[in-house]
Design a protein around this nucleic acid. Structure first.
Lengths: 211, 211
DNA sequence: AAATTCAGCGAACGGCTGTTTACTGAATGA
DNA sequence: TCATTCAGTAAACAGCCGTTCGCTGAATTT
């Protein structure tokens, strides 16, 4: 077996990261299915053939990017679910966390939004699978707080999917708000809308047993 | 001015439609930003240069497709908003209408889902503008049914955006369900989830004044 | 009947694409 | 110290790309 460190491996991983970073940068104004292999290697400053030392093709690189981008989101979700506050405090914390995440990793969110329904099947599937896992986590975190007699597992799952979808929606809304113009006015409007929508869902959840 | 009919104009529009249809077909497994001009003309059986008689470039064709695809959705929304039934009947009618629309025009829905956050700015903007108009319509239709003292215009707008976003989400979920396998099992599951989510929103709306 | 318009054609252009090949030379291991 | 491994190289490959050009011939207008 090979060592996990060493000058050799380190340099290889460095180039690999450079390829992924360059790709993520180039994907800010095009889709993965139109990204060129040469375009990526050129941006890194490396020969086209070097690409194949790291990835089979561009959709392989895309799948790697999915793990990276949704990995960072995963940490954020974990932090939110760990908080044990009340409804309104949790909403506030969630929206703030999403806003900051988008500010910090805009390229990650753009990539996910763009490729979630994009033209490269393996990437689409990787994103769908990861978002499914997110919904699982949210469902597990919510279950103990919901009375079991009015909340069968399928309804809990439905609720969890709604939260995950809403989170992705909100993140892309923040992204577009900061893309239109870097002022903070639009961003506050998006945050206000997101908070109200989450409040509406909370109200619906509280009265779910009526149905 | 030129006549609206005539053999000349008719043939031109026929070719134009053929280009748009071919593009929509080719876009089922790639994004607009990777679609080639020659690819489209080849599919139609026409010389590459002929393309320029109808569109400035591919993003121009994309904008034309947005109008077509969201135009068909527009009719569907109008029909739903015209119905004057109660909450649960409206939910049922909405989900059924979306399901049938996706069954009838899958390529339209795929195009909108894929290019809503895709790599071609003019197309993104056209879709965003049209969905905004949808939200306006929904807001106008809902306003008379909501007590004005607990529903300021911005909250009505928030609710309308939520319904529009949920409709798009549901449509793409139907699309993926029928793409995975043409059986009806997944489709029913998507419909059940969508109905429950709409019911949850309805419950939240009914108790909005509590907040 | 003659003049005009104009959708579509075919050819050519420079430039870019993904992939393969044999290679080099530094890090690694015996 | 010497042999091996292997990330990255340079060059060549056939093939596709968007765009421009002058031209044709049928529909239209005068």
């Amino acid at each position: 077996m090979s060592h996990t460190s060493g000058v050799r491996q380190a340099q290889k991983e460095k180039t690999r990261r450079a390829l992924m970073d360059a790709a993520l940068g180039l994907l800010e104004d095009q889709s993965l299915s139109s990204l060129g292999l040469r375009e990526v290697t050129r941006a890194v400053g490396v020969a086209p053939a070097a690409f194949y030392r790291h990835f089979r093709d561009l959709s392989d690189l895309g799948v790697a990017l999915v793990e990276e981008c949704l990995g960072s989101l995963h940490h954020m979700i974990g932090a939110i679910l760990a908080g044990q506050e009340g409804d309104e405090e949790r909403i506030e914390a969630t929206v703030d966390a999403v806003a900051e995440h988008v500010r910090r990793y805009p390229a990650h969110i753009r990539f996910i939004a763009r490729e979630r329904h994009g033209g490269v099947r393996p990437v689409r599937q990787a994103i769908a699978a990861e978002l499914d896992r997110f919904a699982d986590e949210v469902a597990i975190a919510f279950r103990p707080q919901l009375p079991a007699e009015s909340w069968p597992p399928e309804d809990v799952r439905m609720l969890a999917e709604m939260y995950v979808d809403h989170m992705v929606m909100t993140a892309t809304a923040f992204l577009e708000a900061q893309a239109d113009h870097p002022e903070a006015a639009d961003e506050r409007r998006v945050a206000a809308t997101a908070r109200k929508q989450l409040l509406l869902i909370s109200l619906g959840r509280r009265h779910w047993h009526d149905a």
